[in-house]
Design a protein around this nucleic acid. Structure first.
Lengths: 133, 133
DNA sequence: AGTGTGTTTGTTATGTTATATCAAGTCCGT
DNA sequence: ACGGACTTGATATAACATAACAAACACACT
């Protein structure tokens, strides 16, 4: 048998990718229980933790939710824009901004290890939809 | 009787200020129950929501916790550095960084309304303490 | 003052998110 | 096969948050 954990991670990642927008851990759990009704929360949280660690999944701290990383390939901290209307999330990478941020926080000797940057608002299509209203 | 809500907000703020480091809503609730044992969670959450709105309190999204705003006077989005060792939080304001961030997220027409910027790491004193180890 | 109406606050209950803990299974070197 | 380290599974519970309704209050109008 292959490592069970890896299988679980792959399934979780597949579910998140299919959805495309943020899902709570319990939504993922619900989907997995279709096949495997006895699955428990810690299983999902472990898979999500491993995926988040690896960079395959982002945790949205301000939503307590998770989303599959789209611009696959960067493990750097991402800037995430979150549309409060439709839930769409976009990822951006900006080493410059990260550097600026670290230097601001570093003014007093602080040593950053992890950056959380989330921007809430309206995406382009929800914004234009509202303009017409 | 003065508005009850305002009294509650003042008490919550006083507790957060006394502590100085982040507190969960339920920690605050615990303290308030010393005087007023029948208080329920919604009361605290309402007070915290009002304070957060006004800028007197920051919500730390990545900790699900709250802290009194120290650099009292700015209602702008703050940059918060959080020491994972001792819990100390520092606030910074940088209109430039906020502008840069908005412009990155705005690349695709996104209209930001709220910025969440939290940096985890080690504060100066915890960092130097560890150096010696 | 009395009454109607909208708003704020209190209370109960419940929903949602997350983890501690221990049991069972797996891997691997001997 | 056996023992020890590590991973996974299952049970239980902890921690965080809000829905929904009831009671109190404030205010405008008569």
């Amino acid at each position: 048998m292959k490592k069970r954990g890896e299988i679980m991670q792959a399934e979780v990642l597949a579910i998140l990718r299919r959805r495309g927008t943020p899902m709570s851990a319990y939504e993922v759990l619900g989907q997995l229980r279709d096949d495997n009704p006895q699955l428990a929360p810690p299983t999902i949280y472990r898979a999500l933790a491993a995926l988040t660690e690896r960079g395959g999944v982002h945790r949205l701290e301000s939503l307590n939710a998770f989303i599959a990383c789209k611009s696959d390939s960067h493990r750097d901290a991402s800037i995430l824009s979150i549309c409060d209307d439709c839930g769409e999330v976009e990822e951006f990478v900006s080493p410059d901004l990260l550097k600026a941020l670290s230097s601001i926080a570093g003014q007093s000797g602080f040593a950053p290890t992890r950056h959380v940057i989330e921007v809430h608002g309206q995406c382009a299509s929800c914004g234009s939809a509202r303009d017409q209203a």
